[in-house]
């Protein structure tokens, strides 16, 4: 309960869960992420079912470039680590460090998204339009949905960083930064399966 947090000695050890509101946000975030798991499962299943239906158009092995996917993977993995470091800085009441690591996360996310847009443009120029084949539609929908999640996450963290640029760690913003970091790790988990199931299996199979 909010009333039980002891503030006399400074910021509580787990500021994201020090208030009832923070606890509810923490739990609600996991309910949301569990729902996201099942939603992404349907998109993965559809892609795996339809990926052989190329209708004479470009095939996965013709399009995918391992070096580009590798760079994107490394960028997103690193941004997951920087958001972990941001959360540790938050727990230690180091607000400048929290902001710094979150900005690094934001910039890594922007570069990931730019590479994904570049990738889609490249595929389009190779003749893979959204309606070219069943493979094309399911590929763009699955990977595009992940890209849309990244875009949403970038808007989220940008808003938090701008709104709380000068406040320090408080009991009202700590749960928000923490919820963002959970979301960002989840986006990374989805990408792990996308690069394995879509790209590596598309090239290796």
């Amino acid at each position: 309960m909010a009333d039980t947090a002891d503030l006399s000695k400074g910021l509580p050890t787990n500021p994201e869960k020090a208030t009832l509101e923070g606890k509810n946000k923490f739990l609600g975030m996991f309910v949301f992420l569990a729902g996201e798991v099942t939603m992404f499962a349907t998109f993965f299943g559809t892609y795996l079912g339809l990926r052989d239906g190329t209708a004479g158009g470009p095939e996965p092995a013709d399009l995918f470039q391992l070096p580009l996917v590798f760079i994107m993977t490394m960028i997103l993995l690193t941004s997951s680590l920087t958001s972990v470091l941001a959360v540790y800085a938050m727990k230690k009441n180091q607000f400048q460090k929290l902001k710094l690591w979150m900005w690094v996360t934001f910039l890594l996310g922007v570069s990931f998204l730019s590479l994904e847009i570049y990738e889609f443009v490249e595929y389009y120029e190779h003749g893979l339009g959204y309606t070219s084949s069943a493979f094309a539609s399911s590929f763009y929908t699955l990977v595009g949905l992940h890209g849309a999640h990244v875009l949403f996450g970038l808007g989220w963290i940008l808003l938090l960083l701008l709104r709380y640029r000068g406040t320090g760690v408080t009991l009202s913003n700590a749960p928000k930064f923490y919820a963002f970091s959970l979301y960002w790790h989840f986006i990374d988990v989805v990408w792990v399966f996308i690069f394995t199931v879509v790209y590596l299996m598309g090239i290796g199979a």
Binding site: A2, D3, A5, D6, L7, K9, G10, L11, P12, T13, T19, K91, K92, N93, F95, T167, G168, V169, T170, L171, S172
Partner: peptide, 19 residues
């Protein structure tokens, strides 16, 4: 309590052990 939600802190309450 509500007014404390937007208050920032000089230091962390962590003990050395917790740190």
């Amino acid at each position: 309590m509500a007014e404390n939600l937007d208050q920032s802190f000089e230091e962390s309450s962590m003990s050395n052990e917790e740190k």
